[in-house]
């Protein structure tokens, strides 16, 4: 079996079977990462371009490591050093990248729909590393992988996602992926960041943190983007933490074996208390490691599909 598309743009667009294929493939690559020689020649001679229009250390590095473990050449282009600042259009940049010989373009952009646009317009495989407030599909896949690894299943788990759902591409992709695989998703946060429309995605909405965490198997915290402060979404980070910060007392509402996840980077003391972040329940570092395996699987599988 293979993927149907040369690209990975959104969880919405791929089938359940494709999600499962990626997770299985990732499991194989995770074994590779545990070996002494952590590299396979699967994509030797191919070129991966990381085209990042938004600052990112974590995701870009994860993609870079994944690409290198597969033996592809990696080129990193970020806004500060490329001709983007000279006013070049997205399409012109992409065409230039293609002319340089890229086989896979990994793109991160602050505008929703850019990876979709790119995929339509160039022959190389396009992997969405986060577009605006739309989707971040590889993050959802690594979250699924981590939950599966820790819990042995996805179906019927109670998963609470806490924070700025409205602006979070991670939350969107996670909601689509988790509901697709049969988990029950709860969304927790202030109404300004958790609009009622989200109920139509098959999730339950809670404004009360304690009620939302009751009996949860998985707690996924989202990063509060500090630039939202002062825009009226919530009055202060202090008040936010009082209401929606993850403390040990709140964790105790969840199941005894509940795991705690965070896509990083964390704001300690704003959305998550340090003691919780560092507790044995936290699988945050496993997410980072699994991210490499999942991104290896994605790069490997998309490059096997001809345009």
């Amino acid at each position: 079996m293979s993927l149907r598309s040369k690209d990975l743009i959104s969880i919405k667009d791929i089938s359940t079977e494709e999600i499962e294929l990626i997770l299985e493939t990732a499991a194989g690559f995770k074994d590779v990462l545990g070996r002494d020689i952590k590299k396979v020649p699967a994509l030797r001679g191919k070129t991966t371009v990381n085209l990042f229009y938004e600052p990112s250390t974590r995701t870009r590095t994860s993609f870079e490591v994944a690409a290198k473990r597969l033996s592809t050449d990696v080129i990193n282009i970020t806004t500060s050093t490329s001709s983007v600042v000279k006013g070049e259009t997205l399409l012109d940049t992409a065409r230039t990248v293609l002319a340089l010989g890229a086989d896979i373009v990994v793109i991160r952009h602050s505008c929703s729909g850019t990876s979709h646009f790119l995929a339509k317009n160039i022959e190389a495989s396009v992997v969405n590393a986060g577009d605006g407030t739309n989707e971040h599909p590889t993050q959802a896949l690594l979250d699924l992988f981590t939950i599966q690894e820790k819990k042995g299943r996805i179906r019927d788990l109670e998963v609470a996602i806490v924070g700025d759902i409205l602006h979070s591409r991670v939350a969107k992709s996670d909601i689509y992926a988790l509901t697709r695989l049969g988990a029950n998703v709860r969304l927790i946060g202030p109404p300004t960041l958790v609009p009622d429309y989200l109920k139509d995605l098959g999730a339950k909405v809670y404004f009360d943190m304690n009620a939302g965490l009751e009996g949860a198997d998985v707690i996924m915290m989202l990063r509060i983007q500090l630039e939202r402060q002062g825009k009226g979404f919530f009055p202060s980070t202090h008040e936010y933490f009082r209401n929606w910060g993850l403390t040990a007392a709140r964790v105790s509402r969840a199941k005894d074996d509940a795991i705690i996840m965070h896509p990083g980077p964390m704001n300690r003391g704003i959305e998550i208390a340090s003691e919780v972040a560092d507790s044995s329940r936290s699988v945050i570092l496993d997410q980072v490691t699994n991210g490499i395996a999942v991104r290896m699987a994605v790069l490997y599988l998309v490059s096997g599909v001809k345009a």
Binding site: S112, D131, T133, N134, R169, Y197, D200, L201
Partner: peptide, 11 residues
């Protein structure tokens, strides 16, 4: 504004 704007990630 509506469910579609949320699922497209557009304001």
């Amino acid at each position: 504004e509506g469910l579609l704007s949320i699922t497209l990630g557009l304001k």
